[in-house]
Design a binder for these strands. Structure first.
Length: 636
RNA sequence: GCCCCCGUAGCUCAGUGGAUAGAGCAGAGGUUUCCUAAACCUUGUGCGCAGGUUCGAUUCCUGCCGGGGGUACCA
């Protein structure tokens, strides 16, 4: 007869339950709606397992001493007889702490981790369900050159934000916007058609384009008359229906294919490719122009430096304004920002028009991506129509993004403007050693050196990944594992900084395989998986032995997962989850290093408990890594 | 000039209106008959400066200093 599996432990989110209990006491005091009630792991084990500073927060409202309030809060909580709490204490300056009943708490935490299911949304019990669809735009790399690590930071942030929100149960649609009618792609077209540059044998197309882009920049400086070629190219692209427009569209498409391949190596993909040329061809801008014009959001500047341009006044007033943003140039051509307003209106379903759609590579079943099109073959698939829009765009574009948001507000959609988020992140620049390695003169002693695609000063995403693969190849089990470790290492490096921190890119840091690195996280997962391979799973319901401090710490780390995920989602902050993941991996390592090997554990209760603890950690780490777009390998 | 971001240990960065501010790296020393050493242990008088709000400020406000970015008929 086969042993029956252990029964499911009770679903119990201890922190949320505790927060509810505190809130109830505060409600009885009539202050619940005026005080935030955080419940957090105790700062030090001697205080207890969980603590709340609720009494401290009440002090200003109740105008009484925090410690006294804490005593009354403790009484109120103790009277509720929560089954998972063994003891309540108060400590200065006014914390209320509790010690949990391990026999109830530990199985609940482990049970929840083992029950993690990607198909079941994960969020704290107290958090409300999401309101509607969220549209995330990210990557949006100009299709005229190879993607560098700055573009990769954008894509990693956007992809992880999408993953984090999806994990919490939100409906998320990811779009990659292709600026195929801009100056940058026009420059490369000029280079290819008029300067006679040729790709080298075996050179990837986007790398070739990068080279052309640099060379064209040099030629413009030497022969300013060439700039007329650029202007003519732009006009023809804007008009459409001519050889130049077709040439540029084809050029952009081939570069986009390279970008998709590069991002694919990092596990990054898109639901929809949106093309600026389609926004033009389908009259999106004309429609947006009407909306803006008739709502008075834009005006035709009669004089001043913007004479003859349609502008959005900076202050919201009409009339000439030197700080106004030009949306239609005096030659009648719409600026990038203007088309972005049209796109943004469409994203919320406010434009009254839609794209056509088709498969991006209809001949390739393995490539299911959808693209907008001027003359599509797919039925309208319900893209856009978002409740919330998140645009992942670097911080330098804060001003034009503000104009886009104003475009919504001033056409009568203040709520949508409110739900239109510019997720700004600071740029990736070069640390002095990295800059020197790329041939930049660093004699001036600056802290950071800017990338410059125009001058060829950049670190290409593909090249960095290749280097990372070389770095791990010697120790990795096989090439596939090496590729996953390398991609994960780079993703972690680009995600772990908070968004408003400039990354001074450094090769040693990006390729690090030890310490606070992606490789360490993936290695920790593999280590847990290795233990699970060597120890038979339990056959009895979980029983809890006396807990070691490292076990208690690991349980707390596990218990924090859904809260870390929720916080990362609220703050649209992958770095928050990175910090959590490193803490969890470190807690596992601490447990691993400071307890006896489970394979040799003679006591079946303790062996089963510890194996379950490792299994719970492996499951949580895997879930967390997946939200960060990183692999969770069973072996490295 | 105006606006935004940053300033925490030698370096790179977390962090929070509260309980003794944490990691990684670099340096020094140590750990392997033991589930993966891509690991662990030991070693540290740091919140730019000055005011203000507060019972309590590294966290919030103001001013200053230093660094980066924006302020295009580029994106």
């Amino acid at each position: 007869m086969r042993p029956s599996p252990p029964p499911d432990p009770p679903a119990l989110d201890v922190r949320s339950e505790l927060a509810s209990a505190v809130r109830e006491v505060l409600a009885a005091w009539g202050v619940a709606d005026r005080v935030e009630v955080p419940v957090e792991p105790s700062a030090r084990p001697e205080f207890g397992d969980l603590s709340t500073p609720a009494a401290l927060r009440c002090a200003p409202v109740l105008r009484r001493a925090p410690l006294q309030i804490a005593g009354e809060l403790r009484e109120g909580l103790a009277a509720r007889h929560l089954p998972f709490v063994r003891e309540w204490t108060v400590s200065p300056p006014g914390y209320v702490n509790c010690r949990l009943d391990d026999a109830v708490w530990a199985p609940a935490v482990i049970g929840q981790a083992l029950a993690l299911d990607p198909a079941v949304p994960l969020r704290p019990l107290a958090d409300p369900a999401p309101a509607g669809r969220t549209l995330v735009e990210h990557t949006a790399t100009n299709p005229n050159k190879a993607a560098h690590v700055g573009h990769l930071r954008n894509a990693c942030i956007g992809d992880s934000v999408a993953r984090i929100l999806r994990r919490a149960g939100e409906e998320v649609e990811v779009q990659n916007y292709i600026d195929d009618t801009g100056v940058q792609v026009a420059d490369v077209a000029v280079g290819m058609r008029h300067l006679g540059l040729e790709a080298e044998p075996g050179e990837p197309f986007d790398h070739f384009c990068s080279r052309v882009y640099v060379e064209v920049g040099r030629r413009y400086e030497a022969e300013p008359s060439l700039l007329e070629l650029r202007a003519r190219t732009l006009r023809e692209v804007e008009a459409g229906g001519n050889d130049t427009a077709r040439f540029v569209k084809d050029l952009a498409g081939r570069v986009v294919d390279r970008h998709l391949a590069t991002m694919g190596r990092f596990g990054i993909g898109y639901d929809l490719l949106t093309w600026e040329s389609d926004i033009i061809a389908l009259g999106f801008w004309q429609r947006a122009f009407e909306l803006l014009r008739y709502s008075g959001a834009i005006v035709l500047a009669a004089g001043g430096r913007h004479a003859g341009c349609w502008v959005m006044p900076a202050g919201g007033e009409t009339g000439d304004d030197e700080d106004a943003k030009v949306l239609v140039k005096s030659d009648g051509v719409a600026t990038y920002t203007a088309k972005d307003i049209a796109y943004q209106l469409w994203k919320f379903g406010l434009l009254g028009r839609d794209f056509h759609y088709r498969r991006w590579h209809p001949e390739d079943p393995a490539s299911p991506a959808t693209t907008t099109s001027g003359e599509g073959t797919l039925p309208a698939a319900g893209f856009g129509r978002a409740h919330r829009v998140i645009n992942v765009i670097d911080a330098r574009q804060a001003y034009p993004q503000q104009v886009v948001k104003q475009g919504l507000a001033r056409t009568g959609h203040p709520d949508e403007a409110e739900r239109s988020v510019h997720l700004a992140y600071e740029v990736v620049a070069l640390s002095p050693p990295a800059a020197a390695a790329l041939g930049v003169d660093v004699e001036d002693g600056k802290n950071i050196y800017a990338f410059s695609g125009r001058r060829g000063i950049e670190v290409r995403a593909d090249d960095l990944l290749d280097r990372a693969m070389e770095r791990v190849a010697g120790k990795a089990a096989d090439p596939d594992t090496a590729a996953r470790l390398a991609a994960g290492a780079i993703r972690y490096y680009l995600q772990k900084f908070s968004l408003n921190q400039v990354i001074a890119f450094d090769f040693d840091e990006a390729l690090r395989v030890s310490g606070d690195s992606g490789v360490y996280l993936m290695y920790s997962h593999a280590r847990a998986a290795g233990i699970l391979r060597r120890v038979a799973p339990p056959t009895e319901p979980l029983r809890v032995p006396g807990l070691e401090p490292v076990e208690r710490a690991l349980l707390h780390a596990l218990d924090g997962y859904r809260h870390a995920l929720a916080e990362a989602g609220r703050g649209l902050s992958p770095s928050t989850l990175c910090t959590y993941a490193f803490g969890l991996a470190s807690a596992l390592t601490d447990f691993y290093e400071h307890t006896e090997a489970i394979v040799r554990e003679p006591d079946p209760v303790r062996r089963d408990f510890r194996r379950s603890l490792v299994a719970a950690t492996r499951a949580t780490l895997a879930d967390c890594l997946s939200c960060l777009g990183m692999a969770a390998p069973d072996r490295v």
